[in-house]
Amino acid sequence: MARDDAPWKPSNLAKAARIGELVERITHPIAKRTYRKGFPYLPPTIPLGVEVPEDKPTLGADYDTDWARRSSAKFVRKGLVNGPIRLAVRGLASPKVYGVDRLHDLAQLKDPPPLIFTPNHHSHLDTAVMAVAVPEPWRSKLVVAAAADYFFDKRWKATMAALALNAIPIDREVTGRKSSDMIKELIDDGWSLMIYPEGGRSPDGWGQDFKGGAAYLSARTGAAVVPVFIDGTGALFGKGMKRPKIGTTKVVFGAPMRALEDENTRRFSARIEAEVAELGDESLTDFWTARQRSARNESTKLTGPEYTGWRRQWALSERREMGTAGLRRRQKRRWPDIGN
């Protein structure tokens, strides 16, 4: 239907129209007078013979985020991440973090190298969860590759994303030359990157094929890739949900990976995907089972079973059942134990 609010009541649009009419009655004479004055009181009209040059885009992939890495912005961000964001993440998602020890060696180095974190992506919560879960020293030097078309399409959104999450705009489909140059510069400067190789949130709860961007960037910059599996955020605030639910989540970090010799981007990307899938298995079962299944090549793929339709959804719910993460279920009411 056209309206999903109560259709028997006058719609907000109808109310607004009525109010609009009243206001218009007052403002119209003034507006008319201004209108008659025309330019320069009003914006100029464009002569027909003139080709209007396309505005140099300053939004989307062309949004300049340099300001967000100045020290003042860093300072504000630190406050935001450690204050409201951490509180919100804890309250909403209570993330449990596993596998940080796999990064321990690198963290011990005098000059910890920049890393590329590649989590799976189910929810906007992922970024916030990661902003909290990524261990220091990388957390304070983390930039997040965010979809240019979604986070950087409006100025206010872009400003918020850049300030709060240190997001940088990136095209979903292809990592353009400009984006990849910018990221290389950042990594060379010691910034770590978080990128969702799936290119977007899962539309149905299962993962999507990994795009080659992360692998390519790793090969180009020499930074190691850290596979990460985030479990549970999809159930809390998946794509299409209007407001988040409260529940628990799990974040599992994997061991840093680098492209093997004579391994091309595509194969490396597939390996990252497999690794994230295995981490997923690990988060659902346990390390040993996951290893075994991986060795037998039986890990459930991130992208889910091949079949479509309801069975896919069905399999997903099965999978969610297995996990400890997800919606916080109400405790079954039990009779008080009064002893025998």
């Binding site: 025309g38 009209t45 002569p47 027909l48 013979g49």
Partner: peptide, 22 residues
């Protein structure tokens, strides 16, 4: 060289220490 049409806004003319749109 702009061909003036009906969509062309008035054009700036200097008038000594002032200017006008014509």
């Amino acid at each position: 060289v702009l061909e003036v049409d009906k969509s062309t806004p008035p054009i700036l003319f200097w008038r000594g220490e002032n200017f006008s749109l014509e």
